[in-house]
Design a protein around this nucleic acid. Structure first.
Lengths: 193, 193
DNA sequence: TTAATTTTGAAACGATCATTCCAATTAAAG
DNA sequence: CTTTAATTGGAATGATCGTTTCAAAATTAA
């Protein structure tokens, strides 16, 4: 029987995520990945395929973790307003913890590659669909409970919130002032009531 | 006396802008620039300096043109609401005309390079300051005229609008549905009244 | 027409790019 | 142990990277 992988796949993926996040896809070389993962070049290709495949796996992993964070944050909260606030709170924390101004990996990825690589475009579209589903579900619930107004449909508000989150992530790259960011969030949410 | 430049500098800059916009900074090679500008490699270095210098000149040019568009659009409009609407209208047009999903050059640039190159970071910060000044001036005027509410300061609303514009540009990369985008804009602006 | 000076073309620079190859190493199963 | 098969290290692949070099071409003032 064959020798088995000796490295921790999750840990390697985490290291790879850091590099791609910091330098972007085109800014990251295989040498960068070799250096930071500590893995040999052959092992990377053997275990993850080419650079783009590894990047896609990194994206999926990043998305899965973000999704998990959202779902975990939303459990034990049943008020629609607080749920929306929680989503922005998690985003805010992510921004404030992002000391080296990397921004959001998926937003960066969309900006850099959505118009080149069709696999990336599909991934980002699927990510958007998931976000929209989550957001409009909450809005819909809030509207049923008469907490949110019905001047726009849940889908329309969902897209508005998704847009606002992306904007917040872009602003958050260079502006880490918590009060400023909280004011933006406050203004974003206000229109729902 | 020396031989003078034979090419049209503005036209070369326009071509270079197209490439950088479509492929990003790291995705664009000097060969790409040679191919699309039609200029010789030496001439590029001789007239524009290195790749980064050329990129910075492209950014300045792009910003100048966008500024010009805004100022032109805002002349003969004296109502604050309509001024804000005009700014979003111009952004919307830009999004709808962007057939190959490139997004906004400056947003892309911020996402790709603001955390690496300090010259880029400075440029983007200056661009942000200009946008914030323009937006909060309009908001301030609207508040003086009692058209906009004063629940937030003009500066806070300015930052909110700047954030929203960036979000709109991100959403606009993959979503070109005019109705959807107009609904987002409508929702963004509503909070001011 | 000549002298002065810059642009231009084309080749070349060393470095780095993503990827492949192959022999040596390793570990599980018989 | 021996066999088996995958992982691993390290060198090598050809292509492309950004940048430089230099002689030839081009243009204008004298």
């Amino acid at each position: 029987m064959p020798k088995t992988e000796t490295f921790d796949r999750a840990q390697i993926l985490h290291k790879a995520t850091e590099v791609f996040h910091k330098k972007g896809y085109n800014g990251t070389s295989m040498q960068d990945l070799v250096d930071t993962t500590g893995l040999n070049r052959s092992s990377i290709y053997n275990s993850f395929g080419c650079k783009l495949q590894l990047y896609l796996e990194v994206l999926s992993d990043y998305q899965k973790k973000a999704n998990h964070k959202f779902r975990k944050g939303l459990t034990s909260i049943y008020n629609a307003t607080e749920q929306i606030q929680m989503i922005f709170e998690l985003t805010l924390i992510d921004i404030l913890e992002d000391d080296d101004r990397k921004g959001c990996l998926i937003v960066n990825c969309k900006s850099e590659m959505a118009n080149h690589e069709s696999l990336i475009k599909s991934f980002v579209e699927k990510n958007q669909d998931q976000m929209l589903a989550m957001l409009s579900d909450i809005v819909n619930k809030g509207q049923m409970e008469k907490i949110f107004n019905t001047e726009k449909t849940a889908g329309q508000y969902g897209l508005y919130l998704y847009t606002s989150i992306q904007g917040l992530r872009m602003t958050g790259i260079l502006n880490k002032n918590e009060n400023d960011l909280r004011n933006i969030i406050d203004t974003i949410i206000k229109v729902l009531h």
